[in-house]
Simulated scan of single mutants.
Amino acid sequence: MKLADIRRDYLQGGLRREDLTEDPIEFFNHWLEQAVKAQLTDPTAMTTATVDERGMPFQRIVLLKNVDAQGFVFYTNFESRKAKHLQNNPNISLHFPWHPLERQVHITGRVEKLSAAENMKYFLSRPHESQIAAWASKQSSRISARGVLEGKFMELKQKFQQGEVPVPAFWGGYRVIPESIEFWQGGAHRMHDRFVYTREDDAWQIQRLAP
């Protein structure tokens, strides 16, 4: 198998300036709705990139849980590796790879923590087992075997089987306040269409980028 020979052309259509809305969040929601209707696997899954204190980048996939005019929201353990990175450097990058639609969205911005009320509202909406899992896993810490994690989960499941699971103090959400949002649509012969929105003086500017 030659990796260099693996290729395909992108033929689903282009993206023109007149297709865009003046608000990138509105256009993102339009594309997200189309991704959901197309029944893509995990349309809210996004690659989330942070950097450590040495400038080494790390990526992982998390799920988008809300998006509005304020920004993009996800939840995590505040003791995780990504949270420690963000504590030292609040800059972040998000990437949505909607390959079947020949689309990508790339977002850069800064994070802010959600309020305790926002965390509680979302936590209480989660399935009971997911609430317990938030307590059971000390995310990014080293464990000797999977059985340790499963044992902790079963212990907490017994503890909370009769009552409400409290929101862990070490768990919550981040809002990504976007500074740039780029929309990429595949094109024939690698002539892709790229438009980037950048925030300038509380207004969004739109530019076309070469592929």
Rank of each mutant, 00 (worst) to 15 (best):
M1E: 10
A4I: 10
D5H: 13
I6L: 15
I6K: 12
I6E: 11
D9Q: 13
D9H: 09
L11D: 11
Q12C: 01
Q12K: 15
G13H: 07
G13R: 08
L15N: 09
R17Y: 08
E18V: 08
E18F: 09
L20S: 08
L20F: 11
I25F: 07
I25D: 05
I25T: 13
F28R: 07
N29K: 14
N29C: 09
W31H: 04
L32Q: 04
Q34R: 14
A35R: 03
A35E: 05
A35Q: 02
K37A: 14
A38F: 00
A38E: 00
Q39W: 03
L40A: 00
T41H: 00
T41G: 00
D42P: 00
A45D: 04
A49D: 05
E53R: 13
R54S: 14
G55K: 11
M56G: 05
I61T: 15
I61K: 08
V62Y: 13
V62Q: 08
V62F: 14
L63P: 05
K65L: 06
K65M: 06
D68P: 07
Q70N: 14
Q70M: 08
G71Y: 12
F74E: 11
N77W: 12
F78D: 13
S80Q: 13
S80W: 13
R81G: 15
K84D: 13
K84Q: 15
L86S: 09
N89T: 10
S93W: 03
H95G: 12
F96I: 03
F96H: 02
P97M: 01
P97K: 01
P97R: 01
W98G: 03
H99W: 07
L101F: 02
L101V: 01
R103I: 00
Q104I: 03
Q104Y: 09
T108S: 12
T108K: 14
G109S: 11
G109V: 11
V111Q: 10
K113Q: 14
A116D: 11
N119T: 06
Y122I: 05
L124I: 00
S125G: 00
R126V: 01
P127K: 02
P127R: 02
P127D: 03
E129C: 00
E129A: 03
Q131P: 01
Q131D: 02
A133M: 06
A133V: 03
A136M: 06
A136I: 04
S137D: 02
Q139R: 10
S141D: 14
S141P: 00
S141N: 06
S141V: 05
R142V: 15
S144F: 01
S144T: 07
L149A: 12
L149F: 15
E150L: 11
G151Q: 11
F153M: 08
F153W: 03
F153I: 02
M154W: 01
L156I: 04
K157T: 05
Q158N: 10
K159I: 04
F160D: 07
Q161H: 14
Q161E: 13
Q161V: 09
Q162N: 14
G163K: 10
V165I: 12
P166Y: 04
P166Q: 03
P168K: 07
A169R: 11
A169G: 07
G172M: 09
G172A: 09
G173C: 08
R175M: 09
I177D: 08
F183I: 05
F183D: 08
F183Y: 08
G186N: 09
G187H: 10
A188S: 12
H189K: 11
Y197A: 04
T198G: 02
R199V: 07
D201S: 08
D201H: 04
Q205M: 04
Q205C: 08
R208G: 05
L209Y: 06
L209R: 03
